[in-house]
Simulated assay, not measured.
Amino acid sequence: MFIRGVALALAVFLIDRASKWWFLDIFRLPEKGVVEILPVFNVVMVWNRGVSFGLFSAESDTGRWALVALTSAIVLALLFWLKSVPSRLAMVAIGLVIGGALGNIYDRVVFGAVADFFQFHWGDWSFAIFNVADAFISTGAALLVWDAFFRQGTTGRKKHDTENGTKQK
């Protein structure tokens, strides 16, 4: 499952890179500013210096490289976890998070900030501005929570008590 998880992470990274390349270089979003797609959805160019959804902004180079180091450490920890995942769902979830994190690390290293462009809003109130990597990270995190709570047969308790052969509740 480790190889599949890494392959998924690579695919997610490439999808994120392709989306950012298209929005930045082909569609030229920075020159267009805000483009309304639906009454509740825009594409808009924002350079995010913080983590997902603009949290914990790091304006200085020290902050930028600290976020690169922290995110890289998280990716390494997830790679170690991926070696012993308990389920396919966990493998998929971790692959999504790793690939998304690598996409955002790439932006932070190359551009100094992460390119975000999807904006859901209601009137003047904006929910968040995010990118494809953030969507994969959020989906992966949600799947990890789901897997932790609803994985069948591996909740830490054995279905049968090995000492006396009785079922546990």
Rank of each mutant, 00 (worst) to 15 (best):
V43C: 04
V75G: 06
L14R: 11
V110S: 10
N104T: 11
W47A: 12
F27A: 14
L96Y: 02
F27T: 08
F80H: 14
D116V: 04
I105C: 04
V34Q: 06
F56I: 09
I74M: 11
F120I: 03
V109I: 12
G95C: 03
S52Y: 00
I105P: 01
W22G: 12
L79T: 05
A9L: 02
G99C: 00
Q119T: 14
F56Y: 11
G99I: 00
D107R: 01
W122I: 14
G100F: 01
M45A: 10
F56Q: 09
L76H: 10
S72C: 03
A69D: 04
L82W: 02
F56C: 09
F56G: 07
A18T: 11
T62N: 04
G50Q: 08
N104M: 07
A9I: 01
K20N: 06
F118H: 05
L55H: 09
D107M: 03
V109L: 10
A90D: 00
D25L: 13
G63T: 02
K32Y: 14
L96C: 08
D107S: 06
N104V: 10
K32Q: 15
P30K: 02
K32N: 13
V92D: 04
R17K: 12
L38I: 06
P86Q: 10
M91H: 04
I37K: 08
K83C: 10
W22N: 08
N104P: 07
S52F: 03
G100C: 15
L82P: 00
L38Y: 09
V51Y: 01
V12Q: 03
D61H: 15
A77T: 06
S52E: 02
L10V: 10
L78G: 01
V40Q: 01
G123H: 08
A66W: 14
W47T: 07
S60A: 10
F23Q: 15
G33S: 11
F53M: 10
M91Q: 09
G54S: 12
F56S: 10
F13Q: 01
W122T: 11
F53E: 03
V85S: 05
A115C: 14
S84K: 06
F111G: 09
L78W: 03
G50P: 03
E31R: 02
A77W: 12
I105H: 02
G54K: 11
D16S: 05
A73C: 13
F118K: 01
A66M: 14
E36M: 10
V85K: 00
V110T: 05
L29G: 03
V40A: 09
P39Y: 08
R64A: 12
V6G: 02
L70Y: 06
R88G: 14
R64H: 13
V68T: 10
L76M: 14
F111I: 15
V114R: 00
L29N: 02
R88F: 11
L55Q: 13
L24F: 05
D16V: 02
K32D: 13
A115D: 01
